[in-house]
Every structure is written in structure tokens, then in C-alpha cells.
Design a protein around this nucleic acid. Structure first.
Lengths: 190, 190
DNA sequence: GTCTATACCCAGATAGAC
DNA sequence: GTCTATCTGGGTATAGAC
């Protein structure tokens, strides 16, 4: 099957890989154009600015992540928390190995404030909301943290594992990360 | 007491704040010079390149962190693991609120390979080694992860909390982070 | 819709006077 | 040791021909 993609789609795909791996600043329009097989000024026929490319990339990514995470959460209702969290982790690593902290940094520091609100909102809906719903199923009333905070904590712990060639987690498997996250490193003293 | 610092010391202090907050790329030599109260070319009297400034900053930071973390670990031998981990977290946030993932990214992607090995080594000695020694005291023989991996996992979980104005962890306190890290979110099924 | 040519800016770094 | 002036290169973005 021949992939008959439009130039605009190719740009989004190439730019997505670069932005999510290296970040907004470190990705040049020249590099995007080169990898897309076009000239650099041609980008500006399809998008008004570099920031507009970034926004389109994040919108497309968020849409996909939102749908898949929602599907994963609802379709595994009978599974254990450990299994479900690991399923999410494996999906993200496999399909969208983004550099989470660069993404977070870009959204708050590299993007104009006009677009910031919009991006933050769709990011929340895609990444945070499904995890929050998941935790709501398991946590007792008196748990000291909100599901929102816990979802953020979850992403912090898995972030180095998800991103490409991080090397930060050396030998850790996704099973081990989730086990640590859920049960910690010591038994509670009851 | 009047702080009688040399120009070189001022440069290192100013550059350290900027590099550890915004990263290598996003920090310009013009900004360093301006905040240090000198002209930009004057930087090049004291350091050969921008990268050399970065290296000097990380060497100084690592020395300080290494000594303080080693001191914290050895001087609290009678404390609980939770107390000791929290002491380390509070020290890092208070004294060296670095952006951990930017630092890690810079060391591996922005610095020439000649200096990379050197930086990674002193970073390990300063940040990783003391935590590894600490975990060695507590973990049973059959624990599935190495203390090295666990130390890295520790830094991943605390990283968003340490850095300035992250906003990623919204309401979480240092106590809660450490509690989550040590005991997880659910009881083990024994 | 894609190209060549180029404007414009900001970065790191150097030359040389004082 | 610090300055002014400047070089060189890379970045984003625009003009205009085809």
C-alpha cells in the first residue's frame, strides 16, 4: 500500500517526531523541511509560523492519545490497577515516545500566551483526564492526595521510561515501574 | 559583610542560575553578561567558550551537592528512610532548584562528547552515589531492582517538585511525595 | 504548490584599543 | 581586565518567479 499523504500531513508527521523528541527551540524549520523533502520556505505556504506547526502537531497528538487512553481505561474495567497502568505505559512508549518534560516546558515557556491556554486544555483532556478517572475508581475517600495530583505523579515516574533513548532508567522494565508506583519500596507498618 | 567576589565567581553564579533554570541552549551569553554587570565579550576573557562556562558551573554545583548529600546521609543514620529522603528533597529544593531533566538533556545532547563523560561522572558521584548508599542500607537481598535504578527512580519522582515555578505538581508537599515513593498508593496483598 | 533569493535578527566568538 | 566594534553563522520569515 502506497502512503498517499499530502505535503501538510508529511510536515506534521516529521515535525511531530522532532518536536516531541528534541523540543520546540532545538527543532529548526530547516530540519523539518529537509526531512519532509521540501524546501524551508515551502513550510510557510502550509503554516503561518513555526509555532502554528507546533500547535497543529500537539492537537493531532492529543486527539489520538485522548481517544486511545479513554478506550484503554474503559475497555479494561475488570483488570487490576497494575495491569491497567502498565497497559497505558506500554501504549505511550510504543506509539508516542514523547519527551514529557520538554513538552511541558515548551507549552509553558516557548509558546505565546494566546495559545498556551488552548494547548494546556487539550493536553489535560488527553493525558490527565483518563488517568484521573482511573484513579477515582481505586482510591479510598481518605486518601491524602487528589487524583489529579496522583495522575501528575504517575507521569513524572514514567516520563524517563517513555522518551526515546533517554538512558536515564537503565535496566528498569515497565512492570517494575508500575509496581514501584503502586506499592512503593517498603511495606507499610500497620 | 560585603561580598567581595571576583568577576569569574559572579559569572559562575549568574550562569548557574540561568543554566539550571532554562537550560544550555536557551541561555545566551549576552544574558549572562548583562546579569553579571559586564559586557558579553568580557566573558571570553574568563572562559574560552560558552560550554566551558557550563562545565565550570556543573563542577561547582556537583561539588557542593556531593558534600552536602554525603553529609546528610551519614549524619542521619538513626533516622527513618522517610525522614532521610525528605531531608534530601528539602535540601535540593531549597538550595539547588535545578531543572533536572533539562540538566540531564543538556549533558547528553548539548555538550561535546569530550566533556560528556567527565560531566556524567561527577554528576553520578554528586547526585546518584549518596542515594545509592542510602538505599543499600534498607533494601533486602531479594529486592528486584538495583539501588542504582531505584536512585534514578527517586530523582524522576522528585524532579518536578525541585525545579522553580514548575507548576507540574500542583498541591503536593514534599512529605506526600516521599510517602508515595516509599509506600506507594495501595497496600500490598500479602 | 513549490521553488530561488534574500531580508532580518540574534547567537557565539574574535580583534584590538584602553 | 574591560571595553567597543565587528565577524560569521544559524535561525525564522518574506518576496516573487514559475
Amino acid at each position: 500500500m502506497i502512503p498517499r499523504m499530502t505535503t501538510k500531513e508529511i510536515i506534521l508527521e516529521v515535525a511531530g517526531d522532532l518536536f516531541m523528541d528534541k523540543g520546540f527551540q532545538a527543532t529548526s524549520t530547516r530540519e523539518i523541511a529537509m526531512k519532509a523533502g521540501i524546501t524551508q520556505p515551502n513550510l510557510y505556504h502550509h503554516f503561518k509560523t513555526k509555532e502554528d506547526i507546533y500547535i497543529a502537531v500537539l492537537e493531532k497528538l492529543s486527539l489520538e492519545v485522548r481517544e486511545e487512553l479513554n478506550h484503554l481505561v474503559t475497555s479494561t474495567e475488570n483488570g487490576s490497577l497494575v495491569e491497567r497502568l502498565q497497559g497505558i505505559l506500554d501504549y505511550l512508549k510504543e506509539k508516542h515516545p514523547v519527551n514529557f518534560f520538554i513538552m511541558s516546558h515548551d507549552m509553558t515557556h516557548e509558546i505565546s500566551s494566546d495559545n498556551h491556554q488552548h494547548l494546556y486544555k487539550i493536553w489535560q483532556e488527553a493525558y490527565l483526564a483518563p488517568i484521573i478517572r482511573l484513579f477515582d475508581e481505586y482510591l479510598s475517600e481518605d486518601f491524602p492526595l487528589s487524583s489529579n495530583d496522583l495522575a501528575r505523579y504517575y507521569y513524572a515516574t514514567i516520563a524517563p521510561f517513555i522518551q526515546k533513548e533517554s538512558g536515564f532508567y537503565k535496566q528498569i522494565t515497565s512492570e517494575q515501574i508500575i509496581y514501584l508506583f503502586v506499592y512503593g519500596i517498603l511495606d507499610r507498618e500497620n
